[in-house]
Amino acid sequence: MWCFILAELLVFGVFFLAYAFARTHDVELFNASQLELDRTSGFINTMLLISGSYFVVLAVHRIRHGHSRACTRWLIAAMACGAAFLVLKLVEFSGKIEAGISMSTNTFYMFYLGLGFFHFMHVVLGMVILGAVTLKAWRGGYHATDYAGVETGAAYWHMIDLVWIVLFPLIYLLN
């Protein structure tokens, strides 16, 4: 799993740097377009992902003590955060699409929509993985001595969080 996580970090990292250096060619355009974003929505989404990550930590903590039920509950809480993130993100995207904005509008929007959508799909994938882990935990498939699956799912979820922690200031805040 970890080599996969590293590969993902690499892809995102390259995209982030591509954004940062593409921006140097047209700072005005990037700054102007950035102001059109819903910064508050991005802020709330950051809080959601961080909280989701925190809940996943608690879930791992619980299963380490063999508490399957509590682990399941915290995983569900984490997925709820993920779902809320997805909904907010969809609202953000649909607003842009209604305004006639697409990846071809300009380079900034290519990154905002492209990277955002790429990350969005990762959250979906992360939720699928957490869902599988939750199901197994709920059925009592993990124990205090055997919870590698929870840790692996957790690691992936944290990776998605980590990526967003960089993405949010980069695309929403810094100008």
Partner: peptide, 25 residues
């Protein structure tokens, strides 16, 4: 983190990754 990287994990990454990136395409 101590979890060993198993063959079934590698297989899941392959199938999951293939589907994921094909959907993206």
């Amino acid at each position: 983190m101590s979890s060993a990287f198993t063959k079934s994990a590698a297989r899941n990454i392959f199938y999951g990754g293939a589907v994921f990136f094909f959907l993206l395409l």
